[in-house]
Each structure stands twice: as C-alpha cells, then as structure tokens.
C-alpha cells in the first residue's frame, strides 16, 4: 500500500512535469521579446494587431453560427430518436461517429470538389456561400461531441413522460421542444457548445483550404513569420481552451441529476 502510493506520486509528478514544462517554457519565451528583460511586449503586439482582431472576431462569429447549426440539427434529432424512433438509434450513432473516422481534411477536400462554382450547388462561388460551407464543416466536426452531450442530457430526464405530460396539458410541438425539452437539456447543450467553441476557434485545416480569414490560418501565418508572438498566441489559445473547459465544469454542477443513472 505504502509503496503503491509512492509510485502513484512519482507517476503523477512526472506527468505534471511533462505537461507544465512546455507551458512554462512558452510563457518564458513569450516574454523574451525585449532584449535582456522580461516584458509583455509580444502580447501587446499581438493584441494590437488589426489582423488578430479581425480573424479572431471572424472565428468567434463562425463558432457562434456553428453552435446554432449544431443545436438545430442535433437537439430535434436526438429528441425524436429517444421519443419515437429508438430503432434508428444505432444508425444515427454510427453517422455521428463518422467524423471521427473521416479526417477533416478529407471532408473539406470533398466539399471543394463537390460544391465548386461550376457545380449545381455552387457554395464556393460566393464569399457568403464559402462561409456557410465552413460553418457546415465545423458543425460536422463538432457533431460527435454535440450529439453525445445532448443525448446524455436527454437520458437523464425522462423525455417520454415530460412530453406526454406536456401533451395532456395541451402543448404543441414547438412549445414542447422550446419550453420543456430545451430548458431541461440546456446544460448539456451549453457544454457541447463550449466544447465546439474550443475546437472551432483555432481550427486550421478547413479554414485554410476554404481560404477564409479565420484565426487558425492567422496563427499559422504568424508562426511562419515571427519569433515571439507565436508563443504569446499559444498562451492566449491555451487560456481560451481552459476558459471553455472551466465553463463546462461549472455548468455540469447545475445539470439535472437523474434518479436512474449515477452519471
């Protein structure tokens, strides 16, 4: 028992070292911009850069639309599958797992070939269309996470009874979904949303191949041309990811607890 605890500490400390040294090194590197002394110059340069603000703003907007699209597609589907078509569950679950099998670069490659300006659906013929395709692609990347989050949320509430209770009281479908189901799975949806945000905000492959001015390609561009700013950007990106995960942690405390499932 005693030696077990010793090795547990050794494992934990080694792991912690591996994860914290790069963070410390990056912080240190990001502050080396001014010769001979530590300063926050790199952060000032980055945050003051017009392209930083423009690309970051663009990615935030794209992320928000991605979340909206994801919720619109996932919530009614997951709800309907639970309520009326449980026999379709394996099919839907398989499809939601596909984006883990098919790499993002392949999905976007398919978009480029299928939705070019000469195709019947010329998404890539206009800027707005390309933006829409980027949002769709991101919603696809987030699909596995979003579906799992919402489905778990639905499992903890008794969808069928809630729906029947609402129907007896005379509620229509819009009321049931909007006022009964959504508020009850709101926490789950928000968790999925923040996870989506964390993934989308710095995504590189799709944005770069669709030539959109997003944050990911900007990061890559800075990385290729500057010395200290990338380190500052890495710290900023880490802080954003941490922020999203913290929000999810806090949210999970408010999630409805189910009598049937301990998780």
């Amino acid at each position: 028992m005693k030696s077990g605890r010793f090795w547990a500490w050794v494992t934990f400390i080694l792991g912690a070292a591996y994860f914290f040294i790069p963070l410390i090194a990056t912080v240190e590197f990001s502050m080396r911009m001014r010769r001979g002394t530590y300063s926050f110059d790199a952060y000032k340069v980055v945050l003051g850069d017009d392209r930083f603000q423009a690309t970051f703003g663009y990615s935030v907007i794209v992320a928000v639309f991605t979340i909206l699209l994801g919720v619109l597609i996932v919530v009614p589907t997951a709800y309907w599958i639970r309520l009326r078509m449980p026999h379709l569950r394996p099919v839907v679950e398989f499809i939601t797992l596909l984006p883990l099998i098919i790499p993002a670069i392949v999905i976007v490659f398919g978009y480029i070939r299928m939705y070019g300006s000469n195709s019947p659906l010329p998404f890539l013929g206009s800027t707005r269309g390309t933006d829409a395709l980027l949002i769709i692609g991101y919603a696809m990347l987030a699909l596995p996470l979003m579906y799992r989050a919402v489905d778990t949320g639905l499992r903890t509430i008794d969808v069928r009874t809630l729906t029947e209770a609402a129907q007896i009281l005379g509620a229509g479908w819009a009321t049931i979904i909007g006022r009964i189901i959504l508020p009850n799975v709101l926490i789950a949806v928000l968790s999925g949303a923040f996870l989506t945000f964390a993934i989308v905000i710095g995504e590189f492959t799709m944005a770069s191949l669709l030539n959109r001015p997003a944050f990911g390609p900007y990061l890559q561009n800075i990385g290729a041309n500057r010395a200290y700013e990338p380190a500052a950007l890495a710290i900023i990106a880490f802080a954003i990811t941490w922020g999203c995960m913290s929000v999810i942690q806090v949210l999970s405390r408010f999630a409805p607890k189910s009598a049937n499932h301990r998780n």
Binding site: A25, L195, G202, A234, F238, I248
Partner: peptide, 26 residues
C-alpha cells in the same frame, strides 16, 4: 486533461517550439 486533450493544432506547435526548438527553454 479535458483542457489539454483539446489543446491541439497550431498553438500546441508554438508551445513545443518554445520548449524544444533551437531557442526553446528546455
């Protein structure tokens, strides 16, 4: 772990360049 498993992509590369690149801290 929740944070780090999602900390991939371009920023992660920057962090490792700052750590183990030619001028990295380590």
């Amino acid at each position: 772990s929740g944070v780090a498993s999602n900390f991939a992509g371009v920023p992660l590369a920057f962090a490792f360049l700052a750590t183990l690149g030619r001028l990295g801290l380590v």
